[in-house]
Design a protein around this nucleic acid. Structure first.
Lengths: 210, 210
DNA sequence: TCGTAAGTGAACCTTTGGTCCAGTTAATAT
DNA sequence: ATATTAACTGGACCAAAGGTTCACTTACGA
């Protein structure tokens, strides 16, 4: 994919170095502080650059968070599109949906602080126009889940159900649970809801056998 | 309940008048403007009082929003505790759950802007400690839903499932839908998920008959 | 009528996302 | 090697909003 001719301007070396430093600093700060304590300025200081540089590269606080999420989401995206079943193509829609929800929960667990920070940034930003639908990662996840639901049950409101299942992860009580290491519970419950919605032929719940 | 002896100081007349004015102004502003455009100061101006008065009465932006929600939530609370079935006691847990979700969606539709504003306020406030579990209305709704789920299906994680079902309403894509008048879809999908989770004996979906 | 505690509101503080712009520097053409 | 240039840099600056303070006012009971 022709992403850079040798002729067109590449990213300057110092710029690349600073971009990396900023992302790393933000990641570290978010790992050990709640989002509202991680101001853009603090990130800049930790990265050893000026605040202006951060905004120059990422546009806004939301942009920075989005970039951070993109990095992590890339691996999952690949696995879904080209990886082996049940995550990738080849399994039934039901199996793929459950596998995907598991994977998303796993990733959300690793990124609980980041998701909260992104949500925080969205609501704190000056221009009010930032809906969650503007987040390309959320959109791609939603499209995937929605498609799987629609494939298995054309008669349900797949679009909306997908929002319910995924939106949960951006929610504060669930985010707290993930942060506290309870991700197994979350994955199990999401799976229960999904199976129940799709009408599990082997019984609606995971413990039906005892 | 002895809420005011004739001897103890009642709320002063001017204070009561101003409180009403503030709540009314906030309600009106939220009806026609997105939350991030409704600053506390603007509410104060619209109510014809000083900003200090608002903070004196409501403590914080969150407090104001909470008070506004309380007013609206009171009727529903009554209906659940003492009203006729299926909302009130007397019906099966399944019926009560579905009825309650319908009612909550209806109320969330009327208060879409308010809910968004409350969420916005929570994340914007200075002290970071404001979790959603601090909102008494959410807590009471969650307790109710959780209890109904547990009653119908002791084997599922009722606490978590209730968070998923209710948390959705605080979510931005769903909030937008409610605001756009699509509440029927939301209620239907929530019902589908709830019935699926509880294991509908008559079939997992609402359209099973065509 | 009088004392007082509650109420009031405008000025002020602080934080933070975001903007500006003059100086710096890495990449390229000659 | 040097000149050119466009991108990059970063600290000063700005505005908005939540929240605090405190001197002043006023409703209410005695």
């Amino acid at each position: 994919m022709g992403d850079n001719d040798p002729m067109e301007r590449r990213e300057r070396a110092d710029a690349a170095r600073n971009r990396r430093a900023i992302l790393a600093a933000a990641e570290e700060l978010l790992r050990e502080h709640p989002p509202e304590e991680v101001s853009v300025e603090r990130v800049a200081v930790a990265a050893g650059v000026g605040k202006g540089t951060v905004f120059h590269r990422f546009g806004s606080r939301v942009g920075l968070m989005q970039e951070l999420m993109s990095e992590r989401a890339h691996a999952l995206e690949q696995a879904v599109l080209e990886g082996p079943p049940p995550l990738g193509p080849g399994a039934s829609a039901r199996e793929r949906l459950v596998a995907f929800l598991d994977a998303v929960v796993a990733m959300a667990t690793r990124s609980a602080g980041l998701i909260a920070a992104h949500e925080h940034a969205r609501l704190t930003q000056k221009a009010g126009g930032g809906t969650r639908l503007a987040n390309p990662i959320y959109v791609s996840w939603h499209r995937h889940v929605s498609a799987l639901i629609a494939e298995a049950r054309p008669d349900v409101d797949a679009d909306l159900a997908a929002h319910v299942l995924l939106g949960t992860l951006h929610t504060e009580p669930i985010g707290g649970l993930l942060h506290a290491g309870e991700s197994a519970r979350v994955a199990a419950t999401l799976g229960d809801l999904a199976r129940g919605l799709l009408g599990d032929t082997a019984g609606p719940l995971r413990k039906e056998g005892g």
